[in-house]
Design a protein around this nucleic acid. Sequence first.
DNA 1: GTGAAAGCGCTAACAC
DNA 2: GTGTTAGCGCTTTCAC
Lengths: 342, 342
Amino acid sequence: MARTRGITIKDVARRAGVSITAVSHALNDKGTLSAATREHIRGVADEMGYTADALARGLRSSTMGAVGLVLRSLDALGDYAPAGVDVFERFVGAAASQALARGLSLMLVPDLTRVPVPPLTFSMDGYIVTNPHVDDPVIALLEQRGIRYVTYGGVPGRPDFRHWASEDDAASARLVLSHLQAAGARSIALVRGTDPNAWNLDHQDVYLQWCAERHVPPRLYELPERAGVDGGAALAGRIVDDGVPEAVFCLTGRHAAGVQQGLMARGVRVPEHTMVAAGSDSEHARNSRPAISALELNPVESAGALLDLLQALIAGEDTVAPRRTKARFRPRASTRRQPAAR
Amino acid sequence: MARTRGITIKDVARRAGVSITAVSHALNDKGTLSAATREHIRGVADEMGYTADALARGLRSSTMGAVGLVLRSLDALGDYAPAGVDVFERFVGAAASQALARGLSLMLVPDLTRVPVPPLTFSMDGYIVTNPHVDDPVIALLEQRGIRYVTYGGVPGRPDFRHWASEDDAASARLVLSHLQAAGARSIALVRGTDPNAWNLDHQDVYLQWCAERHVPPRLYELPERAGVDGGAALAGRIVDDGVPEAVFCLTGRHAAGVQQGLMARGVRVPEHTMVAAGSDSEHARNSRPAISALELNPVESAGALLDLLQALIAGEDTVAPRRTKARFRPRASTRRQPAAR
DNA sequence: GTGAAAGCGCTAACAC
DNA sequence: GTGTTAGCGCTTTCAC
C-alpha cells in the first residue's frame, strides 16, 4: 500500500481536453499529433508536475529506466561493507551518479542467486555485474532470463563476450612490472587472489608471459581475497622461505600491505631488500610504512563506460565493443630506491 | 523492451488446474482456500520457478519490496565517489546487505529534487534519507507525495519526528570532550560543518552546553564539508591567530586532518601544544601523523535499525521510536600525552 | 490528426 | 471453497 496515487495520465488528458492516447503520444514523441497539440499537452503536463508511473509503463513492456548492480567481488568477500576495498566502494558511488546523469535508477542487488531474490530483480532493464567468475551463476541466470548485462572486467572463459569495460589490465600489469624492472628487479613474484575472475586471470597471463620473455622462472602465489592483510602477512613467510625475490607484485592493496608487513617482520627491508607494489590502490597501500606503490583504478570512468554500453544494448544496438579505461601508477616509497642502492 | 516475459500467474493456474485467483491467494496467504489446494498450488509454482512480477503486483497497489536511499550528505558534497568519507561508503554497503537480508531491493537515488527524477523514484515502498537538512526539500517532497521515510540522524527543527536512527551523537560528543578534558584540555575549540543537519547541530548544542557548564567561552568554527583537508589547513591559521586552544574537536575526519596539518605547519605541535580529535573516523584521521583520535561510527548497525523502522512503517505501525546505536572512541596519538607533559 | 479500446500481470471485490 | 471480473496506469494498435 505504499504506492503514491499521484497525477495520472487521465488527469492530464482531462485538463488538456484530449484523450489519454494524445497525452501518451505527446510525451513520448510517438504517433502523429499536430505540433500545436503536442506543445499544449506538454505544457499542461509540466504545469501539473506529471511523471509517468514507471510501474505501469514497465508493465506495458516498455523500459523501466532502472538498472541493477551486482557486486560479485563483494559477494565473494561475504561482506558488503569491508574496509580498504576502495575501488568497489567508489564504484558504487560512481555508478549511482553516472546512472542519475543518464536518467536511470540504480538498484543494488547483492547476490542474484541467493533465494529469495528481491522482487524487482527480474524487472530491471539490464545489469552491471562486477568481476564475474568463470562459470558465474549470476551470468548464467541473467542469460537464462534473457536480461541484458555488461560486466566490469571481462567474463573469463568467454573471449567472445564483448559487453564489458574495465581498466586495461594487461597494459597496467606491464606498467607495474616495467617500473619494478627499471628499479632494478629481475625476479618478481606475483600474489594474486583466488577468485577466478578476469582481473586475477589476466594479470597472471601477463605476468607469466613477461617471465617467459625474460627467461626468468615465474613465482606465483595465490591467496584468497578474504584473507586480507593477515593472509598477506602469513604468506610473507612462504615467500621468504622460497628465497626473497627482488620485488613482490600483489594484486590487492590489502595483500600488499600484509605481505610487506610480514616481510619486514622477518627482517626483509622494503624497498632496500625487496620492493612491493599493489595492483589496486587502497587505504592499506597508501598508508603502509613505507607507502606502497600502486595502480589507481578508474571506477568513475569505468562506470560511465559501462552505463553507455548498457544503454546501447538496451536500445538494441549489438555492435558494442569493450571499453578500456586508464589506470594510473602511483609510485611510492616501497619501490623507490636510492640511486646509491642500485 | 527489456522486460522478461517469463512464467505468469496464468501459466501456473493452467498447470495447477485452478483459477488465477486461487494461485494469487495461495501464494499470498489470502482468501479461503483448502489447505490441500494451497499446498498443491505452491508445489506447482515452485516447480515452475514462478516469481510474481513485481511491477504488476506494485501496480495493483501492493508493495514493491524495494526501498530508496538518498545520501544527502553526498548531495551536498557534490561528489558521489569522494575519498575519505568512509562512513557513507560503508553505509551504502551496509544498507544494501541489510536490505537483502530482509528480502528488499535497495535503490540509490542521488538527489530526489533534481529533474528529471529517475523513473522508479516514486514507486518505492519507502526511503532512507541520510542526514537531512533543516527544511530539507527531499523531506518535503516525500511528505508531499505521501511516501514513508526514515532518516539517518534526526530531522533538525522537527523534534516531533521520530522515525530515525543514528549513533547517539550527544553521548559521543561528551565522550570526546571528556577524553580531551581528562588529557588536560580546558579550552576546546569545535570545528563543525556548514550543512544544517542534526549531526552538526546536535554536536554544537552539546558543545555549547559543555562550555557553559564549565564557564569557559566557546570557540566555534564553521567550515563547509566540501572544503575538506585543504579547508582545514587554512582554518588552522585562524585558529592560531585566535590563540591556540588546548584541543580542537573537528566533526569530520578530513577537517581534522587538515587542521592538524595546518597547526603543525605553523609550529604548533600535536599532541604536545594542542590535541586534535575527529567526530567521524576516516582514512585521513587514521593516517595522519600523528594519528588522530576519532569516533568510529556504526553504519552497519544503524542501517539495520533504519530498515527495521522502515519496514514497521510500511507495515502500518506508527509507534516507531528513534533508535540509537553506539559509536566507539578510538584514542590515537593526537590526544595521547606523555605523563611528563601534563 | 485524433481517440476508443485492448491488454501487460496481478490483486481484491464479489458472485457462485 | 472457488472462480469471474473489474480495474491499477500506461502504451499501442486500429478505427475514425
